[in-house]
Structures are given as structure tokens and as C-alpha cells.
């Protein structure tokens, strides 16, 4: 697995990487040098999220030890915003004439998938889900079905970017906090909105444990706009035996009650929130899953990333991950040590 995120997650030891923080209400990715991953002739046309997505996918494959990549399945809520914005702007600026096709091509939601397939010669199944807080989650469901159908492996991931323009657009409908909020203090004051984020996360999944498996996904559920009772029942059922809970808590007062319900349901189990690390975005759930798998694999928590917590659990054997996107798409996962 691999992640490019607002933290230094791509290279180096995450257990000693300091917490990246800002009070801009926007957590942008720490970007690596792309040249070792992407040929210069391809790189020249790519915009940011394409580079971030493709490079994360390639790093994930490199680290997996798998030679032949099977199906490629991704999720993205917004695709390449930079290209979409550029094409809208150029249509206006050049009055619909002499338009460069590249931003149009790259604005297509499955363009990252196409690029990954091109670079690794992946000719198997290829799909892209574009459903807000269910984008990565549907990609995961699709991958689990593919493995059950006999695929040897799947490359499964998510990518999201935030641009200055889109940050402003979403601020007009209350996505972000009004006051500048340091991500270290995200959970201190509950006010409407959260802080924006972005990132790419990829996993190489197999149907049976391999020597280098990081973790096992043993439970998974998506709930669309669920009633509180339905959500509570699902959480209670899936929490059995969990010794750590990862939550998508994001400081947004409007939807905090879902997480408070979790506190009430599972009072004795330690919790780690992760949105101060990756910011809020459509596919933040993929980052949560990456963090859970890191903890299970290393049997260690990157404690330096949680300065706001007094008691940090040393390790975990079974993790319940609960995340929702602005109260609409709720996802619950169970991750276990292999």
C-alpha cells in the first residue's frame, strides 16, 4: 500500500515523521519527486491529481512484490478539479474556439485509471466510482467481489485534490470552518464545517493472506443516510472484539452526533481520530484504512501525530473504522492483524 497525503506518508518512517500542521483550513499534500515514477514525456501534460494518483499507485505496486497486476479499481469524488476548472475557463476565455483538449481529457474521472493501466500494461478489469463518501468504498466492494470471482489481486485506491477555487466554492455552502483552525486543534471547538484535505491512497489486495500482507479487511458495510438506530446496530455488531476505533471525526458540529453515538456505544475502547492528518474530503476513508493497516502491521501507533490525546494505545489487534461524509455516506470497516 502507499499514500500521498498532507502528512509525510509517501517515503520514510511514519512513526518518526513529525505532524504537519497549518491553520489555513486546507491541508495540501506533501508531494514527492515524480520523475523516478513517471516518464518525462508523460509527466509534462499531467496535472497535480493525476501525478499524485498515478505515483501512489505505482509506489503501491512496487512495494507489493506482485508482478502482474489484475483489475484496477479506484474511487474519486471530484476527479481532476484543476483540469475541469481550466477547461470551463478556457471555453469562456477563447469563446469556444481553439481549445486545447488536454484539460477535457484529464477531467474525465477515469483518466487516472487509464494512466495506471497504460503504465503497468494492466489489461484486466478497470473501473472508477465517483460517489462522494462512497467512492473509495464502492471501489473496495468491487475489489472484494473481483477477488471472490477469482481475480489474483486488485489494485484498489482513491485520489482527491482540493484547489483554491474549489475550496472557495465549497466555503459558500458551509463545508469549512469560518475561523482559521489549526489541524492540531480540530477537535477542540465544535463549529459548523471542517478543514479541507486531499490525498491519494492505494492498496494491493489479495483474497488470501500473503507473506507481506499488512492487515486483513474482515468486515465492511456502507450505509446511505441511515436512521440512527440502523447505524447503531451496525456499529455495535461490527465492533465485537475491536480494541481500537479509528474515527472520521472532523470537528463539524452539525454531524458530531454520529461520532458521539459511537462514544456511547463503545465506551471502553480507545479511539484515534484521523481527519486532522488528511483533512476532510470525499475519499478520506481510504486514508483511514491505510492508517489502520499501518498500525496493525507495525504493531505501533504513530503517537507523534496525536498530540491532542493524553492516552495513546500502544498497539491494536482489531480495529473498527467508522467514517461518514457530511452525514450522508457512512462506512464501517473492520481491520485485523494478519
Amino acid at each position: 500500500m502507499a499514500a500521498i497525503s498532507p502528512q509525510t506518508t509517501f517515503q520514510g518512517d511514519i512513526f518518526s515523521a513529525p505532524l504537519v500542521h497549518t491553520d489555513k483550513n486546507l491541508l495540501a499534500c506533501v508531494e514527492p519527486d515524480y520523475k523516478p515514477f513517471i516518464p518525462a514525456n508523460s509527466l509534462r501534460r499531467m496535472t497535480r491529481v493525476l501525478k499524485i494518483g498515478l505515483t501512489t499507485a505505482l509506489q503501491c505496486i512496487n512495494g507489493s512484490g506482485v508482478e502482474t497486476i489484475g483489475p484496477i479499481v479506484t474511487g474519486t469524488g471530484k476527479g481532476s478539479l484543476q483540469d475541469t476548472e481550466k477547461f470551463i475557463r478556457e471555453i469562456e476565455q477563447y469563446k469556444e474556439t481553439a481549445l486545447n483538449p488536454t484539460p477535457f481529457i484529464q477531467s474525465t474521472y477515469n483518466s487516472v485509471n487509464g494512466l495506471i493501466a497504460l503504465q503497468v500494461k494492466g489489461t484486466a478489469y478497470n473501473n472508477t466510482f465517483v460517489h462522494r463518501g462512497f467512492s473509495f468504498e464502492n471501489a473496495l466492494l468491487d475489489s472484494m467481489m473481483l477477488l471472490a470471482e477469482g481475480a489474483p489481486n486488485t489494485l484498489t485506491g482513491a485520489f482527491e485534490e482540493i484547489t483554491a477555487e474549489h475550496f472557495y466554492i465549497k466555503s459558500r455552502i458551509g463545508f469549512w470552518k469560518d475561523a482559521p483552525t489549526d489541524n492540531r486543534a480540530l477537535y477542540e471547538t465544535l463549529t459548523p464545517g471542517s478543514i479541507a484535505g486531499e490525498g491519494a491512497t492505494f492498496f494491493l489486495l489479495t483474497g488470501t493472506p500473503a507473506p507481506n500482507s499488512k492487515a486483513a479487511l474482515t468486515g465492511f458495510k456502507m450505509l446511505y443516510k441511515p436512521a440512527e438506530a440502523k447505524l447503531a446496530a451496525a456499529l455495535a455488531e461490527m465492533a465485537a472484539g475491536a480494541d481500537l476505533v479509528l474515527t472520521g471525526r472532523n470537528g463539524d458540529s452539525r454531524y458530531e452526533h454520529y461520532y458521539q453515538q459511537l462514544d456511547t456505544l463503545l465506551p471502553g475502547i480507545p479511539q484515534l481520530p484521523f481527519k486532522h492528518l488528511c483533512g476532510e474530503h470525499d475519499t478520506a476513508g481510504a486514508f483511514g484504512m491505510w492508517l489502520g493497516a499501518q498500525i496493525l502491521h507495525a504493531q505501533q501507533v504513530p503517537a507523534q501525530w496525536f498530540p491532542m490525546l493524553k492516552d495513546i494505545p500502544a498497539t491494536a489487534g482489531k480495529i473498527l473504522l467508522y467514517n461518514h461524509f457530511y452525514g450522508e455516506q457512512h462506512a464501517i470497516m473492520v481491520l485485523e492483524r494478519v
Binding site: 476527479g79 474521472y109 472508477t128 466510482f129 465517483v130 460517489h131 446511505y224 443516510k225 441511515p226
Partner: peptide, 10 residues
């Protein structure tokens, strides 16, 4: 109210 998804592969 059950499973929903949106796919975009051009």
C-alpha cells in the same frame, strides 16, 4: 435506501 453507487468510466 440500500446500496447506491455512481460509476464514471466515460
Amino acid at each position: 435506501s440500500e446500496h447506491i453507487a455512481t460509476i464514471s468510466t466515460a
